[in-house]
Amino acid sequence: MQQIPTGTQLVRGEAWAIGLTYFTVAITVSIVHRTAGTDPWLIVAAALIVNSATATLAFASATASGGSAATGVLSSWVVSTRFGLLAATIAPRLWSSRKKRIFAAYSCFDPNVSLALREKKDNDLQRVYVSLSLWLVIPWWLGSAIGVFVGNIISDPLALGLDVMFPALFVALLWRQLDHGLSKIVGLAGAAIALGTVEFVPGGLPILLAGFTALFGFRKQNTPPKDLQ
């Protein structure tokens, strides 16, 4: 299996799978926005500037259900809190240069943080983070632009099962890490908290609350997730 960048744990197959998933999901998100009547240029701009599907979808969902624009913006901020947490997770091992971190913040997603954290050496972690960021962002932009134009052809992305691609990708990303005892507890507790609170608190907060299960890490200070050992 070819490693990209060389000497790291990231293999070409993983990068392709992540890129294809983000490409396909971007097409789906564009179709959803297009169906809601959003201007095509605005959809492309959202992909470039916001760089998050959940944020723009949260806005669309809140306003479609009768909420004001301010409520929609607030919803988008709440569902994006996980990006801040993920950024805080990887930041201690990234470059000390503030300028580099300002650029790195733009492409902070779940897969690149999760897979970069597998690396033992900080230098390898930084290379994987940069490489995967490109594998995420470029397909995301392309998919968003293409989705605007093919929106009329693929009228029902759900019929193709495209809505499952994101969670399926995350299952694949997590699988090896859940081999570790404490990781299972943290993961299952996080999922349980999210599902237990989703009907009672605003969107986004269940994920934030789930993040608190990471505090179990204090109980076994010397056992990080398997891939980080």
């Binding site: 947490l85 943290v186 299952l188 789930a210 990471a214 890490g217 997730p225």
Partner: peptide
């Protein structure tokens, strides 16, 4: 290091 696990599972 456990935060991505918790968040991704959620």
């Amino acid at each position: 290091s456990y935060i991505p696990v918790a968040i991704l599972c959620a």
